[in-house]
Design a protein around this nucleic acid. Sequence first.
DNA 1: ACGATATGTTACCTATGGGTAATAAAAAGT
DNA 2: ACTTTTTATTACCCATAGGTAACATATCGT
Lengths: 245, 245
Amino acid sequence: MDSAPPAPPSSPSPWLPFESRRRARDEKREAVLRAAVQLFLEQGYHRVTLNEVAERLNITKPALYNYFRGKDEILFECWSMGAELVDSVITEINAGGGSGVAKLRKLVHAYAELMATDFGASLVRFDLRDLTERNAGVARAAKRRIDATFRRYITAGIADGSIRPCDPKLAAFAIAGSLNWIGHWYRREGKLSPTAIADEFTVRLTDGLAAEVRLQATKKTPRAPQGRNSGRKTTGKTRTGGGTG
Amino acid sequence: MDSAPPAPPSSPSPWLPFESRRRARDEKREAVLRAAVQLFLEQGYHRVTLNEVAERLNITKPALYNYFRGKDEILFECWSMGAELVDSVITEINAGGGSGVAKLRKLVHAYAELMATDFGASLVRFDLRDLTERNAGVARAAKRRIDATFRRYITAGIADGSIRPCDPKLAAFAIAGSLNWIGHWYRREGKLSPTAIADEFTVRLTDGLAAEVRLQATKKTPRAPQGRNSGRKTTGKTRTGGGTG
DNA sequence: ACGATATGTTACCTATGGGTAATAAAAAGT
DNA sequence: ACTTTTTATTACCCATAGGTAACATATCGT
């Protein structure tokens, strides 16, 4: 409160400290979600207060109630944003063709990239028990649909011969587990880009399942049929995130 | 509060409602941890009150402070129990011999089984941000050791030729992710026994990495390796847990 | 311009639950 | 038996943070 309020450097908030406020409702709603999801991921849902969320948007707590019924609804809407992203990915893959393993690879790749986004990570970092019973039900249903999709692609792959026989349920658990975990260790500031991670995981996770072709890891080795590691001497310390969890 | 207190059916609490209280201190301390970890996993740390923990042990909240400095310390001690289990597993594997892939398989198997225990699951279900900075530091260090072990076995495997060349860091992430996720979906009441899961994951997760032998999945296992669940009729829907997460 | 509506603000309420003080009752020491 | 120490109980404190009421100010339709 010293001199004039020069507006904090990069403020991606539609509410300028005390100025023009004429944006569309939906735009503001989404701005709340973007601020909230970021804080929730940073500090954890229970440690984030609505005052903090509001403050980051240059408004005050009660203003939030113009857009949401309460804290848990904000959480749910964040989660839903992620779920919609996954749903649209699935819809697109379903629309296209390809063998079982091809579809599975597409899903793995897209899902891995999603886990590196805020709304994507919220799918696996938020605790559904923080939602109302009603919303938790919706969320569980969405999760089931996603899980079913993994299994369906695997089952289809086994049927069309592109995937070696295995238990679709456990295979789906193993794959989804790896992918979901990305949401826990990925850090924007790390050296691994989302696409690099997605590329690698697509190979790693479907390699053991594929019936025929063995995909090569994207290690740049121009020729080498047997993925030579691109000279990286694995000098330990690369640390991107928490490692095991 | 009607008739005489016949002591709740199966009370694994050293504190009988109003009777002999002469157990050793450590035994009680651990009883607190067992009750706490169970509640924390069931309902989530923030939704569990110390009153609930105490109530389950037939005591009152302040009594807990004879054994712990506060709620967060209970959480930390639960977490530590899990960490110690992993550490002892690692110690044992390190003591034995075998190729890189052999050690990795041992670790995967044991870790998978651990994820099906309360203290094991607490390793990945608890939020380290709920701990004091000091304890969180200890926990992070432990996690790093575990992660390093995965990478070391993989690196060793590549060196001794038992594992195909790959990026140890990402491979470790992929494997640990799958395993950690077990802690999220495994349910005691489900039909999958911990060993069945461990067996399957050991194959699934190291299959794509192994240089030579391709292990065979445990398919063909007659049916229940273990799971004679008291006559549960297994009607279609198998659902063990949340599926994707 | 001018009400009506949407969107903010300030000031407040209150349930919750971690933590503590004072005290009583066992266990253990002598 | 008695004191001392450990361990439990009852009664309380109080900071936090979600939520609400009452009021203010833009924005908009006409």
